[in-house]
């Protein structure tokens, strides 16, 4: 089959993961690998559970009482169960970055936005913070556009720049995995192209898990694609295969626009 399914070079693996919003089961025993330093896309109609699944990775559901996980998400190489009871969600989020649909910079300066996570971790040395900010902004392909106004408000940036700033903020702490929840659905085609280009370059350093409603985007940027429906994982395979010759009829119907 493929390298991820075979177990080589894994960053994470969901095993029989179920998730409940109170009594409502949103995820039904999902098992799939997340290949290391590859882009894995989650696609599926609204309400299929793809964002719910994504948010399990950084324990965002813990904020609501009554939510419950079953099964495991194993993070490699240490083989920590991310949704295990003894695992501190704060520690999980230190290692796993997240970028949301709408850019959400803090109402502070550009530099402070990027260095926030590092300062939270106790880094105080100004020179080192400055270096880290530059590195993250270069990594997010934003440096050239903002290097002369690092101390200006982040709220003055355009939507696409704000989103890249959020990516820089996520990159600054050197995460192992970055979760993207429809990162381009609020952006114009040019800004979208820049983010897609950026995700493609990130692949060399970090593992990416992305939820997208844009099927062509999933086809363009992902190495592996998972199709979810009604809380279940229907099909997981190499993106090239999913988009030319999926093996499940439900996947075929969805990606060709015959669903519904």
């Amino acid at each position: 089959m493929n390298e991820a399914a075979a177990g080589a070079g894994l960053r994470a693996r969901a095993e029989n993961l179920s998730f409940f919003y109170g009594s409502n089961q949103a995820l039904k025993s999902i098992s799939m690998p997340v290949a290391d330093r590859r882009v894995t896309a989650l696609i599926g109609p609204s309400g299929c559970g793809k964002s719910t699944f994504l948010r399990c990775f950084n324990r965002m559901h813990d904020l609501q009482p009554g939510n419950r996980y079953e099964g495991a998400i194993t993070l490699y190489p240490e083989e920590i169960n991310l949704v295990g009871k003894g695992v501190d969600p704060i520690q999980v989020r230190m290692r796993i970055g997240m970028v949301f649909q709408k850019p959400n910079p803090f109402p502070t300066s550009i530099a402070e936005n990027v260095s926030y996570g590092l300062r939270l971790r106790g880094m105080k040395n100004r020179a080192r913070l400055g270096e880290a900010v530059e590195k993250a902004l270069v990594g997010a392909a934003l440096w050239d556009e903002v290097k002369d106004r690092l101390n200006q408000s982040a709220m003055a940036l355009s939507g696409g720049q704000m989103q890249r700033l959020c990516i820089a903020r996520a990159l600054a702490t050197d995460p192992e995995l970055i979760l993207f929840d429809e990162p381009t659905s609020a952006l114009d085609p040019i800004a979208t192209a820049k983010i897609e280009e950026l995700i493609a370059t990130l692949r060399d350093r970090v593992t990416v898990l992305i939820v997208t409603h844009n099927m062509q985007q999933a086809a363009r940027i992902s190495d592996y694609t998972a199709f979810m429906y009604l809380g279940e994982l229907v099909e997981y395979d190499e993106a090239a295969r999913i988009f030319t010759n999926p093996s499940k009829k439900a996947t075929e119907d969805y990606i060709t626009g015959r669903y519904g």
Binding site: M215, Q216, F243, T244, N245, P246, T251, E252, I255, T256
Partner: peptide, 9 residues
């Protein structure tokens, strides 16, 4: 239309 899967084929 950016056809996919069987449509693309």
């Amino acid at each position: 239309r950016a056809p996919t899967a069987s449509d693309l084929r």
